[in-house]
Lab assay of single mutants.
Amino acid sequence: NKASVVANQLIPINTALTLIMMKAEVVTPMGIPAEEIPKLVGMQVNRAVPLGTTLMPDMVKNYE
């Protein structure tokens, strides 16, 4: 099973992601793959992301 990106803390709306906000975890359903973490740094979330939430592509602005 591949790990996904999971919020390590509450991430407020429009916050630019940093490494300490994210962790890799095997979850179902899968979200953004953990190997994308370096690419996510500096990208903004378009909603508040609660602690423990799996990051999905539609939660990150301009994620492709």
Rank of each mutant, 00 (worst) to 15 (best):
E35H: 06
P50N: 09
A24M: 11
P50R: 08
G52S: 07
N62C: 15
A48F: 06
M22A: 02
L55A: 01
N1V: 14
R47C: 04
A3T: 12
A16R: 14
V26N: 04
G31I: 02
N46A: 09
G31V: 03
G31N: 01
E64T: 14
G31T: 01
P50H: 04
Y63T: 03
P38C: 11
T28K: 03
A34N: 05
K39Q: 10
L51C: 11
N14M: 12
M30A: 04
I20D: 02
K61W: 14
A48Q: 08
N62F: 06
T28P: 02
G42F: 11
N1Q: 13
V60E: 00
I13T: 09
R47G: 03
E64V: 14
V27H: 05
R47N: 15
Q44D: 06
M21T: 06
D58Q: 10
I13L: 11
P57R: 14
A7W: 00
T18E: 02
L10E: 10
Q9R: 15
A34D: 12
T15R: 12
V49K: 01
L40R: 00
N1K: 08
V41G: 03
M30Y: 13
V26L: 09
M30T: 10
I37F: 05
T53S: 14
T54E: 02
A7F: 01
K39P: 09
N14L: 08
K39I: 07
A24K: 05
T53N: 08
T28H: 07
V49M: 05
M56P: 01
E35G: 06
E25Y: 12
E36A: 09
K2R: 05
V60L: 04
K23Q: 03
L17D: 00
E36S: 09
K61I: 06
E35N: 05
V60T: 02
K61N: 05
V49T: 07
P57E: 08
E35T: 07
E64M: 14
V49G: 01
D58F: 15
T54I: 04
Q9S: 09
P38H: 13
E25K: 10
V27R: 10
K61Y: 12
P29E: 09
A3P: 10
T53G: 11
A16D: 02
T15I: 05
K2D: 15
N1H: 09
L55S: 00
V49S: 02
P33V: 11
T53E: 07
G52F: 07
I20G: 05
V41T: 08
A3M: 09
M56R: 06
T15Q: 05
V49D: 01
G42W: 13
V5W: 01
M56Q: 05
A3G: 07
I20A: 04
N1D: 15
M43R: 12
L10H: 13
K61P: 07
A24I: 09
N8C: 14
G31F: 02
P38F: 13
T54W: 02
V49E: 01
M59R: 03
T18C: 08
I32V: 13
E25N: 13
L17Y: 00
V26C: 15
K61L: 09
I20H: 10
S4V: 03
A24G: 11
T54D: 00
A16Y: 10
G42K: 10
I11R: 00
E64W: 06
L17M: 11
E64G: 14
V45F: 02
K39D: 03
N62S: 14
D58K: 13
P50L: 11
L51T: 12
L40A: 02
E25V: 13
T53V: 15
L17N: 00
T15Y: 12
E36P: 00
Q9K: 10
A34T: 06
K39M: 04
A16F: 10
A48K: 10
P29V: 08
M43W: 15
N62R: 10
Y63A: 02
A16Q: 05
N46P: 03
A34E: 05
P38A: 13
L51F: 14
M43V: 08
A48P: 04
K2V: 15
P38M: 03
V41A: 11
T15P: 01
V60Q: 01
L17F: 07
I32W: 02
R47Q: 03
K23S: 06
A48G: 05
K39S: 05
L17K: 00
V5A: 15
K39H: 08
V5L: 03
T15C: 10
Q44S: 12
T54R: 13
V27N: 06
A48C: 13
S4H: 02
P29H: 12
M22C: 08
A34F: 15
V6W: 05
L19C: 13
L17R: 00
I11L: 08
V49R: 11
D58M: 13
M59F: 12
I13G: 12
M43L: 09
D58V: 07
A34Q: 06
T28L: 03
K23Y: 04
V49W: 02
A24C: 12
T53Q: 10
E35P: 10
M22T: 03
S4W: 02
E25M: 12
M56V: 08
N62D: 04
L19P: 03
L17Q: 00
M30H: 13
T28C: 15
L55R: 01
V60K: 01
T53R: 13
T18K: 10
L51D: 09
T18N: 05
N46E: 04
N14C: 14
M21D: 02
A24P: 05
N8A: 10
L19M: 07
A7N: 02
P29L: 15
E36Q: 12
P12E: 14
V45H: 00
I37Y: 02
I11S: 01
V60Y: 02
T15G: 08
L55D: 00
L55E: 00
T54G: 03
M21A: 03
I37A: 05
V49F: 02
M21G: 03
L55G: 00
M43D: 04
V41D: 07
L17S: 00
Y63F: 06
M43G: 05
G42V: 02
A3E: 12
D58H: 10
L19G: 03
M22W: 01
L10P: 10
E25D: 10
V6D: 00
T28I: 05
V45L: 14
V6L: 14
K61R: 10
A7Q: 00
Q44G: 03
V27A: 12
I32R: 01
V26Q: 10
T53K: 14
G31L: 01
Q9F: 14
V45Q: 00
G42T: 07
L55V: 08
V26A: 13
I13A: 11
G42M: 08
L55I: 10
Y63W: 12
P33F: 04
T53F: 14
A34S: 13
I37M: 11
K2M: 15
T53P: 01
G52D: 11
E36Y: 08
K61D: 09
G31E: 02
P12G: 06
Q9A: 08
M22I: 08
A3F: 08
I11N: 00
